[in-house]
Computed example of a mutant assay.
Amino acid sequence: MAAVKTNVMRVLEQHKITYAAHEYEHGKEAVDGASVAKMLGQDPAHVFKTLVARGKSGGFHVFVIPVEKELDLKKAAKAAGEKAVELVHVKELLSLTGYVRGGCSPVGMKKAFPTVFDESVNTIPTVMVSAGKIGYQIECSPADLVALVRASTAPITMD
């Protein structure tokens, strides 16, 4: 168990969701997800990154995908019910979500944005996402996480 308790961990505890906290070495900069998976000895297909996009409508959407995959903007737009989506600039992330790049979690954002997980989340025993702070990850049941953030699932990564 990590000595640090992040807001994400508090939210999971409030909702009585069982999770495991993981900590990894890091500098001041964000570490790419594939490196995080490797440092934690995890299958990269079980470690997901959180991306925030702006839809053509002006609304924001959250997409959560395996760290080694790339978001397919066309599929993401379709899943979000938008004509198009584009990722928000990293400078907007903190004011929008309350999180910095590399520490962005689908749990506990400043505002609950419509969220879509890649459908592969339905095929894995546990999923790992950022705990809301660089250097910390949480691992829990995909069904619990998807239900908590009221997410949908869809094929949103590039083939």
Results as ranks from 00 to 15, higher is better:
residue 56 K to F: 04
residue 57 S to D: 08
residue 57 S to Q: 05
residue 57 S to K: 02
residue 57 S to A: 01
residue 58 G to W: 09
residue 58 G to S: 11
residue 58 G to P: 06
residue 62 V to H: 10
residue 62 V to A: 10
residue 63 F to D: 02
residue 63 F to K: 09
residue 63 F to Q: 00
residue 64 V to A: 03
residue 65 I to W: 02
residue 66 P to R: 04
residue 66 P to C: 03
residue 67 V to N: 03
residue 67 V to G: 02
residue 68 E to M: 07
residue 69 K to Y: 10
residue 72 D to W: 00
residue 72 D to E: 08
residue 72 D to C: 01
residue 72 D to G: 01
residue 74 K to Y: 13
residue 75 K to W: 12
residue 76 A to L: 11
residue 76 A to T: 14
residue 77 A to S: 13
residue 77 A to Q: 12
residue 77 A to I: 12
residue 79 A to P: 14
residue 80 A to K: 09
residue 82 E to G: 12
residue 83 K to Y: 07
residue 83 K to A: 14
residue 83 K to H: 10
residue 84 A to H: 01
residue 86 E to Y: 11
residue 87 L to R: 11
residue 87 L to P: 05
residue 89 H to A: 10
residue 91 K to A: 14
residue 93 L to V: 15
residue 93 L to Q: 04
residue 93 L to I: 15
residue 93 L to W: 11
residue 94 L to A: 14
residue 96 L to Y: 08
residue 97 T to P: 06
residue 98 G to R: 10
residue 98 G to V: 08
residue 100 V to T: 11
residue 100 V to R: 10
residue 101 R to P: 05
residue 101 R to K: 13
residue 102 G to S: 05
residue 102 G to K: 01
residue 104 C to Q: 03
residue 104 C to N: 03
residue 105 S to K: 01
residue 105 S to L: 05
residue 106 P to W: 01
residue 107 V to F: 06
residue 108 G to W: 09
residue 108 G to R: 02
residue 112 A to P: 06
residue 112 A to D: 13
residue 113 F to T: 07
residue 115 T to A: 12
residue 117 F to P: 09
residue 117 F to W: 02
residue 117 F to S: 04
residue 117 F to H: 08
residue 117 F to A: 03
residue 118 D to S: 02
residue 118 D to M: 02
residue 120 S to I: 00
residue 120 S to M: 05
residue 121 V to Q: 01
residue 121 V to F: 01
residue 121 V to S: 03
residue 122 N to E: 15
residue 122 N to G: 06
residue 122 N to V: 02
residue 123 T to S: 14
residue 123 T to K: 15
residue 124 I to R: 13
residue 124 I to Q: 11
residue 125 P to T: 11
residue 125 P to S: 15
residue 125 P to Q: 03
residue 126 T to I: 08
residue 128 M to I: 12
residue 131 A to C: 07
residue 131 A to K: 05
residue 133 K to I: 15
residue 135 G to S: 07
residue 136 Y to H: 13
residue 137 Q to H: 08
residue 137 Q to D: 06
residue 137 Q to P: 08
residue 137 Q to A: 12
residue 137 Q to I: 10
residue 137 Q to F: 08
residue 138 I to T: 13
residue 138 I to G: 10
residue 139 E to V: 12
residue 139 E to L: 02
residue 140 C to E: 07
residue 142 P to K: 14
residue 143 A to L: 14
residue 143 A to P: 08
residue 145 L to T: 13
residue 145 L to S: 00
